[in-house]
Amino acid sequence: MRFIPTSVHGVIDYIWGIALLSTPWLLGFADVPAAKWVAVVFGVGAILYSALTAYELGVLRLLPMPLHLIFDGIGGLVLAASPFLFGFADRVYLPHVLFGLFSVAASLLTRMETVLSTGHREPA
């Protein structure tokens, strides 16, 4: 059941991206290059494609919401697996796994239609 409105998902997107981007320094793994760069790339990437999404907090509104949610789901799986795929699980893994699984959950629980500023629903 999809119950998260796209407007809430939009807020989560930007917070999630900034939080992930900052984790290497906040959680003390900036000295692990692969772990740091995965967090930075995924954080910046999420902010960028959120800005390009056709939802309430999108800036350019080019990407349809279903495509955004596919990015969230696939990206979340890759992010969760990244410590094991890129060989840094012995140093740090929990932030990547938790952020990744959160992204997958959000992709499965968010509605696919948006209510834009005009008040009409945009179909998925």
Rank of each mutant, 00 (worst) to 15 (best):
L20N: 00
V41L: 15
I4N: 04
G10K: 02
A35I: 14
L20Q: 02
L27Y: 09
W25K: 07
V11N: 05
H9I: 07
I12E: 02
L27I: 08
A30K: 14
V38F: 11
A19G: 01
D13C: 06
W37M: 15
D13N: 11
G45T: 07
A46V: 10
L21P: 05
I18C: 02
A39Q: 10
L27V: 08
I4H: 05
L27G: 05
Y14D: 02
W37T: 13
M1C: 05
V11I: 13
G43V: 08
S7C: 08
G45S: 09
H9D: 10
A19I: 00
A30Q: 15
V40G: 11
V32M: 14
D13Y: 01
G45D: 07
V41E: 10
G43M: 08
A46H: 12
P5W: 08
A19F: 04
V11H: 05
I47V: 14
V41S: 13
L26R: 04
A35E: 14
R2V: 07
V32I: 15
G10I: 03
L20W: 00
L48I: 14
T6Y: 06
L27A: 12
F42N: 04
L21V: 01
A30E: 15
Y49Q: 07
S7F: 09
V8L: 15
S50Y: 00
V11R: 10
I18N: 00
I18G: 04
I12G: 04
A30C: 11
G28Q: 11
G43A: 10
V8E: 06
H9P: 03
L20C: 03
L27P: 02
W25T: 08
I18R: 00
S22P: 00
L20K: 00
W25A: 09
Y14C: 04
V40D: 09
L21H: 03
P5L: 08
L27K: 05
W16D: 00
G17I: 01
L48Y: 09
S22Q: 04
I47F: 10
R2I: 07
M1Y: 08
D13L: 02
I4S: 05
D13I: 02
V32E: 14
T23F: 01
W16S: 00
D31S: 15
I15P: 02
A46R: 07
I47N: 04
K36L: 15
R2E: 13
F3R: 06
V41H: 08
G45F: 07
P24F: 04
L48T: 10
V41I: 15
V41Q: 10
Y49N: 06
T23W: 01
W16R: 00
W16M: 03
P24M: 06
V8F: 13
T6Q: 12
P5C: 09
F42V: 13
P5G: 07
G43L: 08
G28A: 11
T6N: 10
